[in-house]
Amino acid sequence: MLSQRHTPSRSATTMSPETAPPLIAAQLNYLLSHFPLLVKIENKWSGSKYYPGILDRFTLVISYCLDVIKWDIIFDAESPMAAPDVIFGPDDENFQQFLVLRGEEEGDTKSPKKFLNDWNSRDPTQLMLLIQELRDQYMSFQKKRVAEVDDDRLKFEISTIVAREGIEMHMSSGVDKPEEVKFSVPLLDMNINKMVPGCPWKHKQKIYLQVIYPVEKKYVSTPSAPRLKLVSTTELKSIFSIDDVKLPTWLNGMCMAEYLPHLEESLENQVLEAVSLIDVRRRFIEALALQFGRPLEADPVFCRKATFLAASGVFTFLVHVLISTQFPKQQPELMLQSSQHFNSQGAPIKSLFLTEYPWSPRWEIPLMAERICDYLTDEALNFKRYCNEPQLQH
């Protein structure tokens, strides 16, 4: 059954999927492991009168249009072979009707109802396929809602980007909030994963432009610029931070189709530079190794950090080097950690982050490493005195 959500009573207990009946747990685990987009379980509770400790209901949080949608998935612990019910959020009250009409138009061949009617509880892929189809239908539902908005500017914007793949859109409205249409526009047709040797990322890294238009019910001669924001997949921050990107100015009368090419050209150049800086950081760590010896630990893929063992007389300590994606424009942060002194909790004594040392991004990399080594020759004595202060020992 597919229906609109009404807030159910829930147990406050949060437990792992293994506490669900085996057939239901298999569906959950497959969904969480294989769904191509971000999905997670927010709440779990039991709906069984006779087995209150068995979890058979949960709220699924699914990424959509750079935000999330939440649907309740209701299994029955007393009938684990049966298909689940899906309860949609209160803001999507017309989605169920849309599914019914779409199913009638398409002869029920792609209707989620067909998945439920043909449910095979012993096939662990069933829930994932159902959610995937529902999300696809939800995307069509939102496109239909946006297309029906009485706003000439929005209609024009959609007509200019209709052929662009991967765009998602969402219509938001309510009594206490203005009507807005949000677009999620994927940028850059380049495989960043393959550009990084030894890349550990499970999912393909992407950058999106979020574009939010207010719905104008009347003609406006010079419509205001939409709200713009860059969003990226989380792992991409290991080499490239979109927070450092300055968006091009949206000029009066501009449309999205005009704006995107300039943005993508600038972004592509910045991503290529960010990837090239991995090798610059690697050469910097190698230069430090010539000064301190082989690192105890080092980030071999992104080259963002390394740890070296150093000594000043009989005083031995670790040198942690944290390297920004903006290196060499931004100097590394250094932290010293004693291998001989511990605080009252038994943890090794560490320095604060050190950045007040000689640095110029224009220096050759070997000189950068040499200057750091010279600086730490003196700083090690200060750190040793700090470690021996009596208040740190009690």
Rank of each mutant, 00 (worst) to 15 (best):
F183W: 12
G47H: 13
E133H: 06
Q137P: 04
S238P: 03
M15D: 11
E258C: 02
K237C: 01
G346W: 01
R282Y: 00
D56I: 04
E179N: 14
S111A: 08
W359S: 03
I365T: 12
F327G: 01
L154I: 10
A163K: 13
M195G: 06
V146T: 12
R135D: 12
P52R: 06
E42M: 07
E389W: 15
P328L: 02
E235N: 10
R371V: 02
E168P: 04
R227D: 03
Q331A: 04
Y50K: 12
G174A: 11
K40F: 00
V61M: 10
R371S: 06
L66C: 06
N269S: 12
L381Y: 11
L288E: 04
L336A: 07
H320Y: 04
P52C: 13
C373Q: 13
R153V: 04
V149S: 14
T14H: 05
I62R: 14
K237A: 05
V86F: 15
K177P: 05
D92G: 11
S351F: 10
P390A: 12
K206L: 02
L236C: 05
F284H: 01
H34T: 12
K329P: 03
P226Y: 02
L267S: 11
E133D: 14
V231T: 06
K177R: 15
R5L: 06
E216L: 08
L134V: 11
S9R: 14
K237F: 00
Y259E: 08
Y357V: 00
N343R: 07
I349Y: 00
E168L: 13
P36L: 10
K182H: 03
N252I: 12
T13D: 08
K114N: 09
V280Y: 01
L247N: 01
N343V: 08
D108T: 02
I212M: 01
A77S: 15
S241G: 09
E106G: 09
A274W: 01
E364W: 08
L288Y: 07
D108P: 01
Y208T: 13
S172A: 09
L334V: 15
G53E: 10
L32C: 11
L209T: 00
Q391P: 02
E179S: 14
W363E: 11
V231R: 10
L37M: 14
F302S: 01
N382M: 05
T249Y: 14
P8D: 04
S312A: 15
A82I: 00
D67E: 08
V231D: 05
D91R: 14
L263A: 03
P186H: 06
F156M: 07
A347E: 13
A20G: 05
I242G: 00
